[in-house]
Nucleic acid binder design. Sequence first.
RNA 1: GGGCGAUUAGCUCAGUUGGUUAGAGCGCCACGUUGACAUCGUGGAGGUCACAGAUUCGAAUUCUGUAUCGCCCA
Length: 1032
Amino acid sequence: MNQIPDRFDHATAAGQITEAWEKARCGHAEVNPDRKPFTIVIPPPNVTGALHLGHGLNNTLQDIVIRTRRMQGYEALWMPGTDHAGIATQAVVERRLKEQENLSRHDIGREGLVERIWQWKDQYEKRILGQLKRMGCSCDWERTRFTLDERCATAVRATFFDLFSKKLIYRGKRLVNWDTFLQTAVSNDEVENVTKKGHFWHLYYPVIAAKPGEPDRVEIATTRPETMLGDTAVAVHPDPAAALDKIEAELRQKRAEASEKDQADIDSELEKLAQRRESMLPQLLQLRDMALDGRKLMLPLVNREIPLIADEWAKPEFGSGCVKITPAHDPNDYEVALRAQLSMINILQPDGTLNREGGQYEGMTIPAARKAIVADLDKIGLLGDVEDRDIELPHSDRSKTPIEPYLANQWFVAMDELAQSAMDAVSSDKVEIFPERYRKGYLDWLGEKRDWPVSRQLWWGHRIPIWSQTGLGESDSQEIVQQLESLTDGNGGLSHRVDSTEDGTHHVFVCLRDEDDPREAKLEAIGFTRDPDVLDTWFSSALWPHSTLGWPNQTKELEYFYPTSALITSRDIITLWVARMVLMGLNNVGDIPFRQVFIHPKILDGNGETMSKSKGNGVDPIDVIDKFGPDALRFGLARLATDTQDVRMPVQYECPHCEKLIDQTKKNRALPRIDCPGCGKAFSTQWAETEADKSLLRGLVVSERFETARNFVNKLWNAARFSLMNMDGYQPQSVDVSSLPLEDRWLLSRLATVTKQVTEGVEHYRYAEVTRVLYDFAWDEFCSFYVEIAKPRLADEQQRPIVQSMMAHGLDTLLRLLHPTMPFVTEAIWEGLAGAAPKRGVPEPVAAADFAMIAPWPESNQSDYNESIEQQFAEFQEVVGAIRKIRASQNIPPRETVPVAIRCNPEAQSRLQPMKAYFAGLAGADVIELGPDAKAFETDAPLALTSIEMDVHVDLEKFIDVDAELSRLEKLLSQLIKQITGKQQKLGNDNFVSRAPAEVVDRERESLGDLQRQHESVQGDIERLRSKSKES
RNA sequence: GGGCGAUUAGCUCAGUUGGUUAGAGCGCCACGUUGACAUCGUGGAGGUCACAGAUUCGAAUUCUGUAUCGCCCA
């Protein structure tokens, strides 16, 4: 047995274990009427790139639950897969195309680009699934899905068709962040604001039919003068006086609380405000009245009449107090237009040049048009001042070009009823959300019931299955509808709607349910064209829990595994994903997608920032696995997963040459190569792109946070090693629990308690608690205590067999409890234990399962639980601790045995009597006196254990270091005095004595008495020692 | 601007319903290796529980406000 190495070689073992599990199909789940199902669908990671520690946490927590449930006898299915992630993936591939081949997506065309993205997807899907497997995730890999695969496509088409047929899908306009370079809309989080130097142009718009005394023109100011071509109103504040009052009040409030230095600044602001009130307010009031009276303005250059309106968006404290409204090209103006029901005029083409609405400027780029318009306004005397100014301009994160807000046709899903159904599911607790506080965000967001824009101007995704003809006259549209009837004839799967617009034209939209429907060609033959857009990536994600199980087919898997049991995810996608899964599940299947949702914390870096690829602070879990092992990664993450606190994880680069750890900082975190400050050699990072950098050795990115867990793996491994080395001659045997010695019954009791805590903990997602309980039990109780006590017993031929049975059983139970968190090391030990003790268990040994992974979950045997034994051992450990303290303070060499006397009441005496022998191994003590009459030694070192009413005395005859002992006792004395004074004060307080519960008061009195008794005794000891030291 | 959360030892975090001296791991100090484990063992030092009020006999814990940080939404 000595050939067992003293380290767990995870690098070798993990691969073999994974292979063995796969071969035995341990992670595979099948419809099985004999068992209850337990299902988790993975939040499918984006195929944009590799997984980082956040995914590591998410998947560890899922695996802990699914492994536990599998062991509990459920048919446990963890459905794996990946997400095509629309824009994120397309943008990554497009960027590479540009960088590496200098091609745009238009150069290679739709099919060409999509093919490239599939190649990318194949590469990253493989990498992601490989990462999950190395973490030990026990997914049912045979069922792996992708949100863009055929099965998901079928589900998407069926859903879209259903919603379209129910008239829940409609076409509308919406402002999007338009990237004129990539010619696509980008999402809000792909937009970054850049401060640039620009101008603030003041323009004048003439008033039509101004009444006497009214101004004949209004002044507005803008940073984007070319957008005036799309203006449909000018706004002035409806109550400028009140608005100014409010600002003034706020300033005064601020001033009252500000420092003197800031007060001066605020004073000057107040001054300006007062001037403004004087110079401009009358005019603003007049303009407001003109607006209410329906006055119109003439938009210069295009000569279009536009209304003057009153709207709060106009800020009386800024510029001229009037603001031009360009609804199609400014988000705030868009809101104004919705309120005032203004028309919206889009002046841009997708490539950023002006369209027909631009009139004489049609075809110009934005900068050219700006120049021309400013010059032309100047010519006709309508240009005022031009100020220099810093301007915050939104830029596309992907192309680094300015974003143009752009009003485009989009498909929407009407959310009213769908959202309500998803709200009801949570309000009624059919879907439970943990921690509960996240319910509010979910309900608030859904409560807005904002329609969901689902179209994206991209090529990577599920293409919208709509064919359309637009701008038709009424008779044409009627004729087309008739043609459609003949196509519909007898076949389902075709639905249409006709929209009529303000200008009297008609649009006909047709939706086809099935792919490869021969009617596609027929539609196109009669003039229909297919919508070029694809669906929002969340549309397919929303179907994930049922599409992966085969919906819309009524498969037996859907019947059995749906609704799924738990969803474990991160808080930032509660609305985008979780809410939409609920409403889509209810709409499609008629039932909720999952019963419970657990929201776990986020992993932040050392600066408290979330980890993300774009920041460069992501950590590859594989790096951590390489250094610490998969079990350490998992245990380390799980023990940090509390439900209140995000996880802060400072990380370091490890120099591959000298192993020096270099803190990751904001500066170095995105570098492709780093020069080691220790050895001076360079190494590469995950950002290495050039061949020169890539040829360097790569530095791992790791965190010392995983050391504790790695050490724990080692501790467990060595406890097992000790057990196995002492298993020679093991024979399975029935055990009569009632006749077992105390320490064995204590172990059984503790196992029962720990099993209960762990089981309940996992069932309530209390990961940090579960890992803490297991860590403390395994380390402090099983290893430091049971194993230590077992050592002398194993040497005793009589006791040896029972200790072997108990140890095999204890280890076996511990392995099973730890398996979901640390699958590899427990599986490896399980195999070793199978060799030494294939049949094991207390009271009746049974043959162990082939794998820990499929072993039955331990039952908490309540008859094993024995409170008094657990207390007794706590008492014993306290005495051991007291002896150790005295030994340490006296510098008694560890090999020396010291005589000890323990004074205690008769009850404690009978409890400790059977354990006298174990003081030797644990504290190097020979207990020569135990009981009420035990006396102090001549050369005595005492320590009182108040809480258990005991005095421990160590005989220092051979070891006395008077000075050391005196200083220990004096320190003790001063601590006692402090406590006594505190208690006396408390008990001297009438309020306390009269109002606190009698029980609390009694406890205080009792404890004061004990402290005083100790005080006296310690004082006596000090005096004795002093006189003794004088004698010698 | 609205909502949510956090603030406890040098660092990263626990702290159940208010009640003895507020805990753990890492780090630090001292001592210790002839067989499970130095990825170890034993002991020690280290905290005005962010700040200010309030409730209470008693507050890390409950309430109010302030500050700082983070996240989500506008």
